[in-house]
Each structure stands twice: as structure tokens, then as C-alpha cells.
Simulated scan of single mutants.
Amino acid sequence: MSRVLRLGTRASALATTQSGMVAEMVRALGHEVELVHVSTEGDVNRGPLAQMGGTGVFVSALRDALLEGRVDFAVHSLKDLPTTPADGIALPAIPRREDSRDVLVARDGLTLGELPVGSRVGTGSPRRAAQLHALGLGLDVVAIRGNVGTRIGKVTSGELDAVVLAGAGLNRLDRADEATESLDPLQMLPAPGQGALAIECRTDDTELVELLSALDDAATRAAVVCERQVLATLEAGCSAPLGALAEVVEGDEGEELWIRAVALSGDGSRTVRMSASGLPGDAVGIGTRLGSEMLAAGAAELMEEPA
């Protein structure tokens, strides 16, 4: 493959950093790569993500650029991807996952448990907001938008006492030392696919599909496929108050896939929390089974309740 590969990316600092990491992986395979910036609705529209439809607002413009031949492949934060496949688009690689946990960035180096009652904590995620409410710490949860720098700036300026962010983003931006606490998944289950990247290209570009598949990490793919299958079974969008985390672990008889998930009412007062396990090769089946059990326990109705 002698052509220069055009990698489509959003223009934010985090997106270009993530795309730059993937570009380096592809260059290591012996191919030239150039980054092409693509503006998405999520970048232009500053309203709440849920009001824009939530799922796919950062993805559709990149996919359009792919299908129109303006770029050859694209990198997304996997948690932003809709769970339904897109016609003509392949997902040949999900590289090894970064830290999936959420982190707290708080004033004065405080942890979540040290924040005084009434502290203003910012997040743009209904999932994080609902889990913060569910902890019963008496926090004032404030809806915010903006990139990583903008959000952290609301703490350093004194506008907020803390914000909750994805740890993977801080790690990739070399800002991990600004986090005052990594939140245990027992307190705050991450979004399905959080910390993982998705690399997409056109299905008919078989040569590129084969090349990019070398970057795929099987354990990461099994875990995130299972998490996203819970999301799909519950017919929830990426902005729904649903957390899920799966891991491939070494069991007594070889590798096993374990998953925990939680669905919450918007105010966090009601939760459905369940887990499941099985073989990594049955990631879809495990996720479907867990999602179905959560549905039977009333998870869908919970997630439709207002905050």
C-alpha cells in the first residue's frame, strides 16, 4: 500500500492526540499517515448532548467523510459509537484499552469523600450524575460541556469544586497528575467502551481493513463488545445513565469474561445492578443475557425517569 493514508479526526486536543497515537501505530507498520480535521455536530453545537440525540454526535461527520472518500480511516472514542453498525463502515481494530475508570479533579487535592456537603461537581454525563447522586454525599451536581481543559478550568477558577472526567483522556493528554482521585468502579461504573478507541474504515477497502486489523486487541474487543451489547439490549444511547465494565481474566479453566453493569434513574435514587460471566468468545451472548436480566428487573423504565 503505497498511498499516504488520510486519518480523519476531530480537531479537539484529545481527539488529535488519540488520532496521533493511532497514526504512529500505522506508521510503525510502514505506512505514511496524514491527519485530516473533520468538524462534527458535537464540536459545533454547545447544547447538552442528550438534546442532540446523544449517540453519534461526534461520529456521523467522520463516517460521512469516510464514505465520501475524503479520508481513508477514522479514530473515535469507542464510547461515542452508536451500537448499530453503519452500512459500508468496518471496525477492523480496537487497540488495547487505556484505564477505563472515571477520575475526580477537585480543588485543594480533595477526594470525593472529602468534598463538603453542597460542593458543586460538574459533569456532562447523565451516567456520572446519577451515580454521584446515588452515593448520597449531598453534592450539587452541575451539568457542563466543553473539552478537558475547559472543564478543569472551571475548578481552577473556583466556579466548581470538582469535575468528573474519563481517566483515559487525562492520561493521553499527559495530565494524569491533575486528577485528585481515580474512582473505584464500585462507586462509579464507567460508560460502555470507556477508555477504548475505535478505528473505522470503508468495508470495501479490504487492503486497509487487513492492515488495520493488526492493531486489534482481542481482550479489549471482547470486553467492549460485551459492554456495548448490554447497552444495545437495553436500547439505551451513549448518554443514558448506564455504566458497564467487562474484563477478561484468567480463571481456573482458562480465560473468562466478567461484566458488571448498573442502570439508574436520573436522580440516582433507584438502581438495577447486576453481573454476569462466561467465555470471551461469547461476548455478545453474555451482554445480551445480562441486558435481558436487567430489562426484566425494570432497568429501561428507570433510565427514562428524569433527573
Rank of each mutant, 00 (worst) to 15 (best):
M1W: 03
S2T: 15
S2Y: 10
L7R: 08
G8H: 06
T9V: 05
A11H: 15
A15I: 01
A15N: 12
T17K: 05
S19N: 02
G20D: 03
A28E: 14
V33S: 07
S39N: 13
E41K: 06
G42T: 01
D43G: 03
N45E: 03
Q51T: 15
G56Y: 02
G56Q: 05
S60K: 11
A61H: 09
A61T: 04
L62D: 06
V71M: 02
V71P: 14
F73W: 02
F73D: 01
L78Y: 15
K79P: 11
L81P: 14
G88P: 13
P92G: 01
P92L: 00
P92W: 00
P95I: 00
R96L: 12
E98M: 12
D99V: 04
V117N: 12
S119F: 00
R128A: 12
R128K: 11
A129V: 07
Q131H: 03
A134R: 15
A134M: 08
G138H: 08
D140I: 00
A143P: 15
I144C: 02
G153Y: 01
V155G: 03
V163Y: 08
V164H: 06
L165H: 10
G167L: 00
A168S: 15
N171D: 12
T180Q: 05
T180V: 00
D184M: 01
D184V: 02
Q187R: 13
P190I: 03
G195F: 05
E200N: 10
R202P: 11
T203E: 15
L208Y: 09
V209R: 06
L212A: 08
L212M: 07
S213C: 02
L215D: 11
D216C: 06
D216K: 07
D216W: 01
A219G: 14
T220Q: 10
A222G: 10
A223M: 07
A223R: 12
V224R: 10
C226E: 04
C226S: 04
C226L: 00
E227Y: 03
Q229G: 02
A232H: 14
T233C: 08
E235T: 13
A240N: 11
A244W: 09
A244G: 04
A246E: 03
E247S: 11
E247N: 15
V249G: 09
V249H: 10
G251E: 00
G254P: 14
G266T: 02
D267H: 08
D267G: 05
S269W: 03
R270K: 12
V272R: 14
S275R: 13
S275V: 05
S275C: 07
A276T: 00
A276I: 02
A276Q: 01
V284W: 08
G285Q: 11
T288S: 14
S292M: 08
M294P: 15
A297H: 09
A300Y: 06
A300F: 04
L302A: 05
L302T: 01
E304K: 15
A307M: 08
